[in-house]
Simulated scan of single mutants.
Amino acid sequence: MNTKTMVDDATLIHPTKHANHFRPVNTSLNGLRRSDKRSAIRQKFIAGLICALSCLAVPAFAQDGNTQVRFLVLANRESPLSSVVPGRMAKINVQLGDSVTQNKVLATMDCSDLVARKNAAEAEYHAAQLRYEAKAKLQGLQSAAALEVGLAASEVNRTKGQMGIFDAQLAQCKFISPFNGRVAKIYVKEGQGIGAGAPVIDLVGSGTLRARLNVPSNWVAWLKIGSQLNASVGETGKQYPLTVTNISGKVDAVSQTIEIETRFPEKTDDVLPGMSGQAVAICPPDENRCLKSGAANS
């Protein structure tokens, strides 16, 4: 008796050991292994993610056709002050938003243990000096060897170096403003214990503000230091001229953009670091490459 195989659209019928019994084999998607299903789902997710990122990388266009670029306002200088040694906060001399001058003491830590250790080191230093002076006099009387005098001198240098270490550690107990600016954030309170490396105070400089942008890479053909942009800050609703000060040396291969930095005019008291907005480049006269890239005409 010949073995027959029955075939339909969704199922194959294969013979088993007995010719009159058939075992169905499902060939649809439900028959795939779980690992194959996960792989297919993963590939679809990655393809969707790449598509979404590609959409985000496309610059926005205003109704007039000009390319609008998002920017972030930055302070001219920033300094996150942190603790170098562990201890307890003894005094905080500033409040949030205060204007500070360079070399102002912003906060101090309770370093009484370091003071005590420094005092002990000073006592050892003075004692070492006395021993050295005595050995030197004895050497003049032929009562002390040169080796003893040399050892006494090295002890003086050792204790003096120990004092320098404590002086350096005590200097870290004071948080001093490195420039003129404003207090952006205070992380600690008086009496709070902090560890080494813990943030204490964030400072922002009071100089001319900056703006950082990622502009389309085709702007490189005409963009240069000194180029002008027209910026609109969302928080204030006002427009400000921006001047290009720095251009990155590398184009981002994924988004096809290049990072630049610009500066605001000097008198922009209503703009604060952290604000954001949109900017449009202003084309120089007779610069066709700029107009083709979607920038505004001057």
Rank of each mutant, 00 (worst) to 15 (best):
K4T: 13
K4Q: 15
T5E: 11
D8P: 02
T11C: 00
I13C: 10
I13W: 11
I13E: 14
T16I: 08
H18A: 07
H21L: 10
N26R: 07
S28D: 10
N30S: 14
N30W: 04
D36P: 02
K37G: 11
R38M: 13
S39C: 10
A40V: 09
A40D: 10
I41C: 09
I41A: 14
R42Q: 15
Q43T: 15
I46K: 13
I46F: 12
G48H: 13
L53Q: 15
S54W: 10
C55G: 15
V58Y: 10
P59H: 10
P59C: 06
A60Q: 13
D64Q: 09
V73N: 09
V73E: 11
V73G: 05
L74G: 08
N76L: 10
S79Q: 11
L81D: 06
S82H: 12
V85Q: 12
G87Y: 02
R88W: 08
M89A: 09
K91M: 08
I92H: 02
Q95I: 10
D98S: 07
V100D: 07
T101V: 08
Q102W: 04
K104W: 08
V105T: 14
L106G: 07
A107W: 01
C111I: 13
C111S: 09
L114I: 09
R117L: 05
A123R: 11
A127M: 08
L130I: 15
L130P: 09
K135Y: 10
K135S: 15
A136R: 13
L141I: 03
A144R: 05
A146C: 05
L147K: 14
L147W: 07
V149R: 08
G150T: 15
A153T: 06
A153M: 12
S154R: 12
G164F: 03
I165K: 03
F166Y: 13
A168L: 02
L170I: 00
P178F: 00
F179S: 01
I186N: 01
Y187W: 02
E190Q: 03
G193D: 01
G197N: 03
P199H: 00
V200M: 00
I201R: 03
G205H: 00
S206H: 04
G207F: 01
L209E: 02
R210Y: 02
L213R: 04
L213E: 02
W219G: 05
L229F: 11
N230W: 08
G234W: 07
E235M: 01
T236L: 00
G237E: 02
N246H: 05
I247S: 04
G249K: 02
G249W: 00
A253F: 01
S255K: 00
T257P: 01
E261N: 06
F264P: 04
P265S: 05
E266K: 11
T268W: 01
T268C: 02
D270S: 08
L272E: 11
L272A: 12
L272Y: 13
G274I: 03
M275F: 07
A279D: 11
V280K: 15
C283H: 01
C283Q: 01
P284M: 09
D286W: 05
D286V: 13
N288R: 14
R289F: 11
R289L: 15
K292P: 06
K292G: 08
G294Y: 06
A296M: 13
S298N: 15
S298F: 11
S298W: 12
